[in-house]
Nucleic acid binder design. Sequence first.
DNA 1: CTGGATCCATTGTGATACTG
DNA 2: CAGTATCACAATGGATCCAG
Lengths: 125, 125
Amino acid sequence: MYQKKIERTLDCGVVLTKEVLHGKWKSTLLHFIARDVRRPSDLQRAIPSATRRVLNLQLNELEQHGLVSKTIFPQLPPKVEYHLTRLGESLLPVIEAMEQWGNEHRATLEPLLAATPRSASEPAG
Amino acid sequence: MYQKKIERTLDCGVVLTKEVLHGKWKSTLLHFIARDVRRPSDLQRAIPSATRRVLNLQLNELEQHGLVSKTIFPQLPPKVEYHLTRLGESLLPVIEAMEQWGNEHRATLEPLLAATPRSASEPAG
DNA sequence: CTGGATCCATTGTGATACTG
DNA sequence: CAGTATCACAATGGATCCAG
């Protein structure tokens, strides 16, 4: 059977943080929620490259991990708001450090990332 | 004038940073290289949960993205060293923020992550 | 000691359609 | 407006073997 003993490589704090931030849009979601973009439709607008489905998926995980909390207003039309929990807020320094670094080095990074479409080399023929 | 709409969502610095940090061990690798663990075999020892293959894979990407540089000493036995570039060093605040956050909230996170369906395995003894 | 190749299981993400 | 189910594919990561 293909099963590997799950080691707690969590000896390194980085791994722990990565676990929580794992997911293409989670940190962006956190970033925007922190900036008062709290409703799903607004988040969707803020992150048009992601689909509603994926956004919901990651929002759910964020909620499970205790980083955001979800408030449902039982009304018509339905209204939902996400907001950061204490734990989520404590993560903001990390998120904002990422935001800042990304913005600062954008000029350097974009060409590099464009040149690395997830694959270094391709079989020649 | 044509407006080159960037569909890459790179409008958000976080996404850029995530791209670069994408990969299970990359940030851990960066973390250890910054702490003078520079040779592949030492990195392997530092991160036993990862295989050599994956470590190499991610080291390569890190190099392609200009975060680390690789020095090959043409000798016997072969010797290789990775070290952070300026760009890689500039990322350290982010890495260390992750390290710190992870360590600080470990007690809170571990049970949460264990309860996550993603690793729905039997409890690791 | 170093790095790569192949094979393969698991996960993440996206498109679409449907429900309330 | 909000959220989920299903299907499909790409990407990630791991085991093992091969090569300098």
